[in-house]
Design a protein around this nucleic acid. Structure first.
Length: 254
DNA sequence: ATGGCCTCGGTTCGAGGA
């Protein structure tokens, strides 16, 4: 069983890459963020032709999430019922007995901005809601672009980023509260090489210099964590022409 | 020192991302 998250930064632009990646990486569940498509423009036919069922929740220009699955998708929820939000950032569904939550956490822009306060409120509400979801679904996976680098090991230059958005104490405390729901960071269940990241800025040749951050995560509740045998970041699509600035993160379960 | 890119909408520049 393979569960994947990938912020594609426009599915309109990246659909060929998503299909190409799936061809060489057949997976069970693929959560996408930043589709940037209204639902009427979502490429359902192309994705179904590739052998996947799909649910999605989008809006114009910004945000937008989708879940692709080899298996039947049921109990779909769009957005957090505890948090009034015009932005389409959450999609939850039950697949093969697992509660799959696809999340695009707000970026936050800067720690002194309104968007940062929105990010913290959004995360607080997510934690509240996941608490209730976990009571109903023992096997839960939260996959997505968290826009949080949980520790300095997840940041190419911790000193330069200290206190900034994506690494601030308040954001990291939110990540720890998520883990406090008894969710495990799949990536850290295993020994990993140093300086592995999931996002690199398009500017400054950041990818070539490996100046990145690990901000895309897969958190697993205990029954799924105990089944998890690997978690990897696939850097290959970041090397393609016209790439997303994020790469897929893959958890393999027995 | 600063910003350096990409996407979108809608026109050729601003907003947002991270």
């Amino acid at each position: 069983m393979k569960l994947v998250t990938w912020n594609v930064n426009s599915l309109k632009v990246r659909l060929p890459q998503v299909l190409q990646w799936l061809e060489s990486n057949p997976v069970d569940v693929l959560c996408l963020q930043e589709t940037k498509l209204t639902d009427d423009k979502f490429p359902v036919a192309e994705i179904e032709a590739a052998g996947y069922q799909v649910v999605f929740s989008g809006q114009k220009t910004y945000n937008g999430v989708a879940i692709l699955s080899r298996h039947p998708i049921t109990e779909v929820i769009k957005n957090n019922p505890l948090f009034e939000d015009e932005q389409q950032r959450i999609l939850a569904a039950t697949i093969e007995g697992m509660r799959i939550v696809c999340a695009y956490v707000p970026n936050g822009q800067a720690v002194d901005s309104d968007k940062y306060q929105y990010k913290l409120r959004w995360l607080d509400a997510l934690i509240q809601w996941l608490g209730t979801e976990l009571k109903q679904h023992e096997s839960l996976a939260l996959l997505g672009d968290y826009n949080i680098a949980p520790a300095d090991a997840d940041v190419h230059d911790p000193a330069a980023w200290e206190g900034q958005v994506l690494v601030s104490d308040a954001e990291r405390a939110m990540f720890q509260r998520l883990c406090g729901l008894n969710l495990s960071d799949a990536f850290r269940l295993f020994p990993q090489a140093e300086k592995l990241y999931s996002w690199w800025d398009y500017r400054q040749m950041a990818f070539r210099r490996n100046r990145g951050m690990r901000i895309d995560h897969i958190l697993l509740s205990p029954p799924l964590a105990s089944r998890c045998i690997a978690c990897e970041i696939d850097k290959l699509p970041r090397k393609w022409e016209q790439p997303s600035d994020h790469t897929p993160v893959i958890a393999t379960l027995t």
